[in-house]
Amino acid sequence: MSVTEAFARVLSRSGGSSRAPTLDTSHNIVLYLEDISVSFDGFKALNSLNLYIEAGELRCIIGPNGAGKTTMMDVITGKTRPDEGSAWFGQTIDLLRLTEPEIAKAGIGRKFQKPTVFGSHTVFENLELAMAGDKSVWKILFARLRAEQIARIEEVLETIGLKDHRQVLAGGLSHGQKQWLEIGMLLMQDPELLLVDEPVAGMTPQETEHTAELLVGLAGKRSVVVVEHDMEFVRSIARTVTVLHQGSVLAEGSMQEVQNDPKVVEVYLGD
């Protein structure tokens, strides 16, 4: 690190409350995963995985069970540390040095496969909790919702179609509604990169269609990575598809190209 860089770093540290540097996507790439390997008791969940996500892109990731999709998400969000490789968020943020809350703060939001909303809080409170902002203990202890924050929550309630359920306890929502609430919580975090794990599992065709619209609408402003099994859904939203197999990338390209790739047909689409 050069002297000026170091100086800039010190300045940014004393200036902002955030320790991580701000996201820099000047090379038009928002996420770099290079040579990532993770093994659990000898089983290689990820095997020198290389993945680049462009800023504003909507990327779908498919692959059979055990291909490493969830482990990849875990590495990006700091839940699992890789044995080897590097993971960068933009040009400046080294994900492997940050904790889960720091990564969330830096701008990566995640929706889990199984919807985990806070069941004993209302829909409104779930969104309030997920809201971007200073999440240190003292700030939160004396936090009051400002008018523009309430407006933002109302806006998201509208987007996810739960406006009439704002005072309902999240534990009592239907499965599809919980999925939507999760997406809403993701939106409240205002992330630059959204990781969405199986967004339409258990949704009706109508709900699926809404979700597709929502995700397509988000791409451009933000980058979205979707892991999904539902091929119909992937086909309806994907521009670029990455196929994972045994912990590394098997093929990448448009849905058309991937579908016609003989390797892919063999391991995944064929059966």
Binding site: E100, P101, F112, V117, F118, G119, E125, K135
Partner: peptide, 22 residues
Amino acid sequence: RFGRVIEAIRDAESRARFIGYR
């Protein structure tokens, strides 16, 4: 809101971590 955060931690600790709470 602190109270709502600790309840959230009680109900889903890792979820609370992923939305940015230490």
